[in-house]
Amino acid sequence: MFHSTQDFYIQRLNTFSVTGCIQIVFITLLSRISENKRESLMTTFIKSFNIKKRDFVRAGEASINIQNILKSLDMDPKLIRRIAICGYESEMNVVMHGGDGILKIEIDTGKIILDISDNGDGIENIELAMQKGYSTATEEHREMGFGAGMGLPNMKANSDMLSVESEKGRGTHVHIEFNVS
């Protein structure tokens, strides 16, 4: 039994705390969740997922989990698709090119943020990496259906803001924002 809309959403979000997460933080803020519901939610939702280097079997699990969270909040399916694609491409990038990494989603007032960081080799030339078709992928990556140099361009095309910080040998940090109207 939910005493308020806020309780209802918090209950929904809490259902995702049981699988595979390492962190859930609720911060009290005023937030709108769904255009349809036009309801207020006194919560910013943050959840983080571990990504393991070369773990091709689990690659994509976090994005599917994020997709399910957003579906449970009745968000716009097109927005969910854009976020899931960015999450999935970033997961694959970490698995293929990064070291171990963390994918974090933050659902906040009018904005959803994906924040991906890894401790891998880093990107030598970010400008080149942002170009369609540029790839340093191996044959193994291509056998998984990825590695055609479309990851970062695809993420940029599906986001409202994307920034990449990287240094050779010092890992990569990708910050992606989506506006929620």
Partner: peptide, 28 residues
């Protein structure tokens, strides 16, 4: 990545890739 780069909602996906990534891509 090619599938993810374009519209695919409601499509049937033909592929020769049989890994979990084919299913996750279809889902996403």
């Amino acid at each position: 990545s090619d599938i993810l780069a374009g519209p695919a909602e409601g499509c049937v996906l033909l592929t020769g890739l049989t890994t979990v990534q084919a299913v996750r891509t279809a889902s996403v």
